[in-house]
């Protein structure tokens, strides 16, 4: 069954993800980041993308560890020196800053997992075709071509394997040479075949007139309301952010991490914003059970 959030107009989902991305970059504060992480995980669970998340987990952990460790190594700023490492000051500030950047990165990556699940290529294409129709055609061709090239390459290597030629056996220089030959075959073949695709495009009137685009999605009233809700909250959070709330200053002097009243108010907006898909699903769930 499709969830309610997925049934929103692609513009709503797209705006949500873009704005959420900017929030994860702007609101660098341990409490905000932790909340963000929880929300993103819950969104991933709701939209059944935990499996994909698990596939990415190793990469996410390694790259965030990398950032967490590299920041203190290259950054000596800060007052609280924890210890010296080869005449290099390791400060508490740089550790905390590194930790927050790492967390922000994890959240962003986790967000892209659910983004991929919800923003199907079809939706993205639709959004682009409104602004840049020519680019949309290019995107559509690319979307088909990348998996197609992959399938062709598999085909080539299996056919060559049947001839006893393989990139997996033999001396390294020979393997590299074979690999290059594969790519050469792939490219010549794909170019040849693309001529036919081009003919088929021309035969269907491509490039004769100004293109229109098929509207796969209708912009409904509730899409408008959702957009207003998201933008309003976002502006409030942004206003708070520029007044110094929801952000932990680390350099040159580290603030206390505790939240003031202003911070808490912004945090509330922050939660309402990120929780939007969850609220929508919850609303749908309640309505379903009351109606039945």
């Amino acid at each position: 069954m499709k969830s309610r959030f997925e049934e929103f107009h692609p513009l709503v989902s797209f705006i949500f993800f873009v704005l959420a991305l900017s929030l994860f970059i702007l609101m660098i504060h341990p409490v905000f980041l932790l909340l963000g992480l929880i929300f993103i995980l819950m969104i991933n669970i709701t939209y059944r993308s935990v499996e994909q998340l698990r596939q990415w987990a190793a990469f996410m952990i390694i790259s965030s560890l990398f950032i967490f460790l590299l920041n203190p190594l290259f950054n000596e700023r800060g007052r609280h020196v924890l210890f010296m490492f080869h005449q290099h000051r390791i400060t508490a500030e740089s550790l905390i800053y590194g930790g927050m950047s790492a967390l922000s990165l994890v959240i962003i990556m986790a967000m892209f997992v659910s983004y991929n699940k919800i923003m199907t290529p079809n939706k993205l294409l639709y959004l682009f075709s409104k602004i840049l129709p020519q680019f949309a055609v290019l995107l559509m061709l690319t979307l088909r071509f990348i998996p197609l090239m992959k399938r062709r390459l598999d085909e080539i290597s299996s056919i060559q394997l049947s001839k006893g030629i393989s990139v997996l056996h033999g001396a390294l220089n020979k393997r590299v040479k074979t690999g290059l030959l594969y790519v050469q075959v792939l490219l010549t073949y794909s170019l040849e075949e693309a001529i036919q695709t081009a003919d088929s495009m021309k035969a269907r009137g491509y490039g004769t007139r100004v293109r229109s685009s098929y509207e796969y999605f209708k912009f409904k009233k509730r899409d408008g309301l959702a957009l207003v809700y998201l933008l309003l909250l976002y502006l409030l959070i942004l206003w708070g952010r520029f007044n110094g709330f929801g952000h932990l200053t680390v350099y040159p002097i580290m603030e206390s991490w505790q939240l003031g009243t202003g911070d808490i108010r912004i945090m509330l907006f922050y939660c309402l914003f990120l929780g939007f898909p969850l609220l929508i699903e919850l609303g749908g769930y309640i309505r379903w059970h009351i109606l039945n």
Binding site: P121, N122, T197, D199, S200, M201, R211, S212, Y214
Partner: peptide
Amino acid sequence: FQDPENQVVADNVLHEMVFGLENIG
């Protein structure tokens, strides 16, 4: 055309069907 694969332009059937219609606006 002869080859079923190569004359396909889009990755999705609906896209493929409306491709020509979009071209003529």
